[in-house]
Amino acid sequence: MHFAPDTEEALEFAVVLANTDAGASRSGTDEIATVAQLGELLADAPYSGRIDHDEAERREVALARAQIREVWTLGRDDAVAVVNRMLREARALPYLTRHDGSDWHMHATEPDAPLAERIRVEAALALIDVIRMNEMDRLRVCAADDCTGLFVDLSRNGSKRFCTVRCGNRMNMVAFRARHA
Rank of each mutant, 00 (worst) to 15 (best):
W72G: 01
L87G: 03
L96G: 02
Q37V: 08
F13D: 05
C147N: 08
R179G: 14
L93I: 13
G149C: 10
R132H: 11
I131M: 10
L17M: 05
A81D: 13
V152K: 07
A22D: 05
A81F: 05
R132I: 08
A33M: 06
Y47I: 05
L127Q: 02
G75K: 01
T148L: 11
M171D: 14
V130D: 07
W72I: 01
P94H: 08
L115M: 05
L42P: 10
S102V: 11
D145G: 15
M171E: 15
E40W: 13
A144V: 10
N169D: 10
N84P: 09
A10K: 03
V152W: 11
A113Y: 07
M86W: 08
A79I: 04
M173F: 09
C163K: 03
L127I: 07
N172K: 15
V141K: 12
L96Y: 09
P94V: 09
A178N: 11
E60A: 15
L41D: 09
Q37A: 15
A90G: 12
M86H: 10
T109C: 14
R138M: 13
E31P: 06
W104V: 11
E55G: 02
P5W: 00
G49Q: 06
A123E: 01
A81Y: 03
F13M: 08
R177L: 13
R76M: 03
R58Q: 07
G101F: 07
A33I: 09
S27T: 15
D52H: 03
A79T: 04
E89P: 00
R65L: 06
P46E: 06
I68L: 05
A81N: 08
